[in-house]
């Protein structure tokens, strides 16, 4: 693996992500044109529809310019972190996003931690004990939880842990560190039911695949210590699929947060998006989607780069592609 081939691979991936983001932003922007009805009326929000206000909207959003010019203006503004204003409150979209992002990021990180901390060990145990009791239990649970929708699970959690047992708060984000954490536990558990199952499955499959390889048999035959066998052979070689799973989990969490925030009435990006969609507040919709999409692309990029660090073969293959 040469430095140049690695660099070329990284730049290639970055370029790909940038192109995707531009295509995607164009799609998001086009929604405005696709939306049924007159964009002017949509952008009016709850202002009265007088000829004056309508003209003002036209001028402010350059609606008389050709479509591509409008998009270009929006895109260059977006690159300067200016995503326009909410048509309902007049608040800057970027400041609205900043205000809400905290809860979503905290929820995402907590979910990710729970998922990885439980998913990888459970998957490994299931894989190493394939067909035994532990494996059957873990696999059945995974099958169950992978199919459970987070909002339905969330509601059941509220009923049990907030209602019947009264252990944890049911809704809202709370104030301050410890209180915030208490408020985020149930949402994070609801969100991680599906992702834990995902990580369990990826890890289990990877471990089974690796444990059956000749190099494991050969290493056992020449007396490699069991601990080395587990960490340097099985775990190390299972890492690529596990990284894939981690990437999938992160992007799933970013998107799944939308539904879970609605379930637990958390003031995050997701609930901002949902209310904006319900109220047809297009600048907010565009801004939030763009931010979440950019985050997802970034996660994918980091996943790809993580492969590089783990598997020396990927850099070579990737560069020669």
């Amino acid at each position: 693996m040469t430095l140049r081939s690695t660099l070329r691979y990284v730049l290639g991936r970055l370029g790909g992500a940038a192109i995707l983001l531009v295509v995607y932003s164009f799609g998001i922007y086009s929604l405005l044109a696709l939306a049924p009805g007159d964009p002017v009326r949509l952008l009016l929000g709850n202002l009265p529809a007088t000829p004056e206000t309508m003209d003002a909207i036209r001028v402010r959003y350059n609606l008389d310019d050709p479509f591509f010019v409008q998009y270009w203006n929006w895109l260059t503004d977006a690159l300067h972190l200016d995503l326009g204003q909410s048509v309902l409150t007049g608040q800057d979209v970027s400041s609205a996003i900043l205000e809400r992002a905290g809860v979503t990021v905290q929820l995402g990180l907590l979910t990710f931690l729970i998922t990885m901390a439980l998913g990888i060990p459970l998957g490994m145990v299931a894989g190493l004990r394939r067909g035994r009791f532990a494996d059957r239990v873990v696999s059945q649970l995974a099958m169950f939880s992978v199919s459970a929708p987070s909002f339905a699970v969330g509601i059941l959690l509220i009923i049990v842990f907030a209602g019947q047992l009264n252990w944890l708060p049911s809704i809202g984000a709370g104030e301050g560190g410890a209180d915030r954490l208490r408020h985020l536990i149930l949402p994070a558990v609801a969100l991680s039911t599906a992702t834990i199952a995902l990580v369990v499955r990826y890890t289990r499959t990877a471990v089974i695949e690796v444990a059956g390889q000749d190099y494991i048999i050969a290493a056992r035959a020449r007396g490699v210590k069991p601990s080395r066998l587990l960490f340097n052979y099985v775990l190390r070689n299972s890492l690529v699929p596990v990284i894939t799973a981690a990437g999938v989990v992160l992007s799933f969490v970013m998107v799944g947060a939308v539904v879970v925030e609605a379930t637990f009435a958390l003031p995050g990006l997701g609930s901002l998006l949902v209310s904006a969609v319900q109220q047809k507040d297009l600048p907010i919709v565009q801004g939030v989607t763009l931010v979440i999409a950019a985050a997802v692309f970034l996660i994918n990029l980091v996943t790809d780069l993580a492969y590089l660090a783990v598997d020396p073969r990927i850099a070579v293959d990737g560069a020669s592609r």
Binding site: Q213, D214, Y215, A218, R222, R236, N237, V310, D311, R313
Partner: peptide
């Protein structure tokens, strides 16, 4: 023990 397939006998990483 030495195994049959040299391509799978060594830890690839």
């Amino acid at each position: 023990m030495i195994l049959q397939d040299p391509f799978t006998m060594l830890n690839p990483l």
